[in-house]
Amino acid sequence: MEKQIICIQCPVGCSVTVKHDGQNIKGISGNKCSKGKFYVQSEFICSNRVLTSTVLCKTEKGILPLPVKTDGEIPLHLLRDAVTQLRKNTYTAPVKTGDKICSDILGTGIDVVATKDLL
């Protein structure tokens, strides 16, 4: 079987072909450098993404959105659930960039941190 994966490690955007038997990679072609090989290997096994979103935060000026991100990549299929999870709580200022907003989101071992100071 074959799967096409567009490499996004650089602007070239190689269209890489992965030959596989459903589970294991049998061959990789179309990538112009080794970054592409590593990218499609991990992409084939499980697509991971950094999630950026906002949570609600109580401040002196009222409730404002606080920008946050996952402190590492989480599986692509968990992005929606992670957003839903984050929306359940309202947080309270002051918050500094890098402050932990949520530990181990959805059991991924990845924390969610603030990306802006909010007083």
Binding site: I6, I8, P11, G13, S47, R49, L76
Partner: peptide
């Protein structure tokens, strides 16, 4: 950017 087409639309 290709990165955005892949991660924002294709995903």
């Amino acid at each position: 950017l290709t990165r955005n087409v892949v991660q924002c639309l294709n995903d």
